[in-house]
């Protein structure tokens, strides 16, 4: 009861902040005369397509890549920008269908920092029945488990820009748009190291999940308890990530992309009976076509 009240209070506070801030910005169109704008234009768009091979370890117990398609990711990426509103895909991400896309509005744009309203999926969902179908044999820990939908949230993002780096902080509530109540705080730092025609990005991220979020995604409720799946209520948790990503031009339209991410999770997530792998390594090699 208390948790629900807190979530409602947080969602209301967030809505209030966004309403007040939006009013200000509609009155004064944000300036786009610096590098923090998507493009230095009122309206712009960009379309890209990518194909990549992905080694993608899953934390879910019993789930592993097996089919050719599991290793191949195809993405169509679309960026659109109009008077501060933006819809952008994450060009590094091998598949825009999952966590790549985000929509938002630039509330304040300054030379060295920016404040946006942002909506994106902060936590990927999973469908236990699909995982079992894709696996040749049954996975007892997933059998009978309910689907977990995407953890799409709405919140604010503060970004601070340095010469070759960006630090961004998202605070988002999942309650309005997702079955997972609760909230997420996501901090990400990315540093660009240019080397000849290569762009090499070094990144570090930390995501805090409130108890409602981890309960929804890796918890086991009373209805889901089985002999191999005890009741589990994890409480709040976190994910820490380190990554290296590199891009190199191939031709006027093609670029080569490669990246590796190492993820670490809190004990509250690792101790879940649904979780099989505790520290994950993911690797991506691919090409991107810019139309």
């Amino acid at each position: 009861m208390l948790k629900n009240s807190l979530n409602i209070l947080m969602a209301l506070s967030l809505s209030l902040i966004l309403t007040i801030s939006s009013g200000k910005v509609f009155a004064a169109d944000p300036k786009h005369d610096n590098e923090t704008t998507v493009f230095d234009k009122t309206f712009s768009w960009r379309f890209m397509g990518g194909i990549s091979g992905v080694y993608d370890q899953s934390p879910i117990k019993g789930d592993k890549q097996s089919e050719f398609e599991d290793y191949l990711h195809v993405s169509l990426l679309f960026d659109l920008y109009y008077k501060g509103f933006f819809m952008q895909s994450n060009h590094r991400r091998s598949s825009a269908a999952t966590l790549g896309g985000e929509i938002g509005y630039e509330l304040i744009v300054k030379e060295s920092w920016e404040l946006d309203i942002i909506s994106k999926a902060y936590v990927p969902g999973y469908e236990p029945s699909d995982i079992i179908d894709n696996n040749d044999s049954d996975i007892p820990t997933l059998s009978g488990l309910e689907d977990r939908g995407y953890g799409r949230g709405i919140g604010v993002r503060y970004s601070h820009f340095y010469q070759n780096s960006v630090l961004s902080v998202d605070i988002a509530s999942l309650a309005p748009l997702s079955k997972a109540d609760g909230w997420v705080a996501d901090i990400f730092y990315s540093h660009l190291v240019p080397y000849r025609n290569w762009d090499i990005y070094l990144g570090a991220g930390f995501t805090y999940y409130s108890a409602d979020v981890t309960d929804y995604f890796v918890g086991v409720n009373n209805d889901e308890v089985s002999s191999v799946r005890p009741f589990y209520e994890p409480g709040s948790g976190y994910q820490a990530q380190l990554e290296i990503f590199a891009q190199h031009p191939i031709s006027q339209n093609w670029s080569f992309n490669a990246g590796i991410t190492q993820s670490y999770y809190s004990d509250t997530i690792n101790d879940s009976p649904i979780i099989g792998k505790q520290h994950l390594t993911k690797v991506m090699l691919g090409v991107l076509y810019v139309f």
């Binding site: 590098e35 923090t36 704008t37 998507v38 493009f39 230095d40 234009k41 712009s44 960009r46 993608d56 960026d79 952008q88 994450n90 060009h91 590094r92 991400r93 091998s94 966590l99 970004s159 820009f161 960006v166 961004s168 990400f188 990315s190 990005y201 990144g203 991220g205 990530q241 990554e243 990503f245 031009p249 031709s251 006027q252 339209n253 093609w254 670029s255 990246g259 590796i260 991410t261 993820s263 993911k282 991506m284 810019v290």
Partner: peptide, 17 residues
């Protein structure tokens, strides 16, 4: 000299996974 990305994108936060 030519470029793959002709327009100057804003500085973005990108993540692989």
């Amino acid at each position: 000299v030519s470029w793959v990305h002709k327009a100057t994108p804003r500085k973005r936060r990108w993540r692989i996974f």
